[in-house]
Amino acid sequence: MRALLTRDLMLAFRAGGGFGLGLAFFLIVTVLVPFGVGPNSELLSRIAPGILWLGALLACLLSLDRLLALDWEDGTLDLLATSPLPLEAALSIKALAHWITTGLPLVLAAPVLGILLNLPTPGYTWLVLSLLLGTPALSVIGTFGAALTVGVKRGGLLMSLLVLPLYVPTLIFGAEAARRGATGMDTTTSLLMLAGITAGVIAIMPFASAAALRVNLR
């Protein structure tokens, strides 16, 4: 298991592995928003938590098609399916690797981008906390989308169509927590719900992902 994790991490960090692309995308989206809605700093600070959550979500989404596609092409997935390690565990590890290479950097970058969007001071802690709780769910749900569409050629767009509706609950509670935190309201309920969704998703989704992947490997 650890070997798989280190392998995935090494591949991601290697040149051409795609590490950092998600971060760059996050940055660009955040920079483009003021061009779209105007430079009014009051408006920006109001929508900042939502924009940052949305940006992180999209950056996460964009890196998903690399999650399984490369291993699918070179046959690694077939090996994984026949290895003693259950496919559910292998996919959980892959989701974890995806989170470490994509989700975690996004969490760390979010406060910096918050400055650009004039995020109110009390909001930073809550933004980071909510992203920290929410992004693992994005990776795990994304793994399911990737497993569903791994056999489809140029399935990136299809995958977005499938995965984005599944992101709705996470986005709602995550952005709600960040927004409430930024305006100084109580965030306990939304954070608890967010954590609940993440925990549930981590526990259950690998089974669905593995089922889908097995069908595709048949």
Partner: peptide
Amino acid sequence: VLCLVGSVFAVLSRYAVNF
């Protein structure tokens, strides 16, 4: 599989949206 997972998330979204 998508229908099963989607159903769970549709219900989840319903509650999330209510909240």
